[in-house]
Design a protein around this nucleic acid. Sequence first.
RNA 1: GGGGCGGUAGCUCAAUUGGUUAGAGCAUCGGACUGUCGAUCCGAAGGUUGCGGGUUCGAUUCCCGUCCGCCUCGCCA
Length: 601
Amino acid sequence: MLKRTHTCGELRDDHVGETVILNGWVNSYRDHGTGLIFIDMRDRYGLTQIVFDREDADQSLLDAADTLRNEDCVAIKGTVRVRDGGPNPKLATGTVEVVVVELEVLAKTENPPFLPGEKGSLPSEDRRLRYRYMDLRRPEMQRILTIRHRTSQFARRFFDDRGFLEIETPMLTKSTPEGARDFIVPSRLQPGSFYALPQSPQLFKQILMISGFDRYIQLPRCFRDEDLRADRQPDFTQIDLEMSFVDRDAVLEIMEEFAVGLWKSELGVDIPPVQRMTYKHAMETYGSDRPDLRFGLELVDVSDLAAKTDFKVFTGAIEKDRGCVKVIRVPGGAAKFTRKITDGYTEFVKQFGAGGVPTAKVNDAGELETGIAKFIEPIKSELIERLGLEPGDSVFFGADTRGTVNRALGELRLKIAKDLEMIPEGAWAFCWVIDFPMFEWDEETKRFYALHHPFTAPTPEQTDEFMACDITDVDAVESILSSGYDLVVNGSEIGGGSIRIHRREIQKKVFDLIGMSKEEANAKFSFLLEALSYGAPPHGGIAFGLDRLVMHLSGTESIRDVIAFPKTQTGSDMMCDAPSAVDEKQLAELFIASTWEPEEG
RNA sequence: GGGGCGGUAGCUCAAUUGGUUAGAGCAUCGGACUGUCGAUCCGAAGGUUGCGGGUUCGAUUCCCGUCCGCCUCGCCA
């Protein structure tokens, strides 16, 4: 076969006169008949125009060229020359062309389901997933997967430079309680027992610290059997690391350096120092633990004012346990919100548990115009002052328990920003969210859950307080802050971690507090408790979601675009048709039988 | 498990209040053409309107069910 001397993105004016060989695909052809055919050849480096010209080619070559079609895989040999017809500014190679003297058709194509070239519009996603090899020929997909590659390489180089060791951890491991649902794998050698695929290498990396490896990095595949979303796949990749003899700030600093370096090298963007925000502030001001700081629309607490009204929606909310009334002020919103839009917002917030979202606007006279004006009248001037209201503004009220108000207004805040196109193009708003509560009380199950995970240490300041606290005292337990941290960019959590518990008695107390019996703790985590009793170093770390990182760097909205072979919302791989049934024999070897029965009808 | 949107030619889309033979662009096939670069021009072929049922004289259109895809709530420590 003709082996390439250059790629299809390489040839320039200074190659003119050289004999070259190109390998690639027919991206498009322009057949002028009787001896003049142009073909754009494509590989992952670019496009090059090749030309079959009767002045330079015999009839058999022209006849062969005449049969070429889009997506045929070909090799050509020819001479680089300046284009007769003038340059094509759209192509990097646009000033030259290769006049072909030899053609080798490496493989003809059937009529493809769609063309990866620029022609036509993007096929529906299920077509793209079904014919993924064709979709991945698209330059855009190759661009994204190249960014993914460079991100991985950047991470490996960055952490290698700083003394981190890449160490692999098992894919067949132990099922853990809490957290997400595990994917389980039956053991043939031990009938009736099961491995789980790791949700993350959390415990293994802690054990590696206890083993003295000091600084660990891995790009592990992780598995969580939960429902999919635009940014969630059942198997995904982390940039996972752990460090010994560090405090929180040491981890934040090195990770910030990593993020800054990555954004600089991949996008040429300089990120300013990343601000830190407490969980409480994030929740109260942005209604979210992953605040999007690219725009304003902060939540303002007006509970004290609302209490002075006779509006039952307000007063009723305030009387609730942990009730409050908050407001979002939308500058200049009055002219933009129709009744239809605000009615839509009422429906929107209902899915987050809010009853509705009373609204008002400020008219040119500076008066509040609203269906609830008479209720607001007593607090009008205070409201205007606190919110800094000006003519033309709109305000939206949330009144309910604090959790519901924060959630509903936090989501509404995002929706308004999108609807009003308030999010600046190309902006990068990073922040660390810190000082999470260690635990959250769940009314339904009447127990505490670890907000991060149960290996997260309390803050150094509160460690003694934690060890002393009565685990039945909900208020006392909820006041304990953890050493956890999340890195958020543009309202998306891209990484999270913590300083871990490195003392056995603290770990035992956490298990105790989340309602795990001694027997269960021993069955699930005896190895950890044991390891913690043999001189475990203080340690902490973080895991970044590689997929989400690449989504941001490549500017795509779907996690499926940054994964070569992703799954659909129902967990199918549409190309190879996984998951699928297996032979009875395979099941028998594993002592497995399916209890699933198709529904009748 | 819940809510929403979608499924018509290989691909992307159209088809009036339910109405005669379901159209167009690209791709494919045949033909013309020597400077194109989304080549152009002429012609052809291409359909179980996702599937099943119902309403109707008549269904791509209305109704019910179902499958698939997407967004989302729950879920995701």
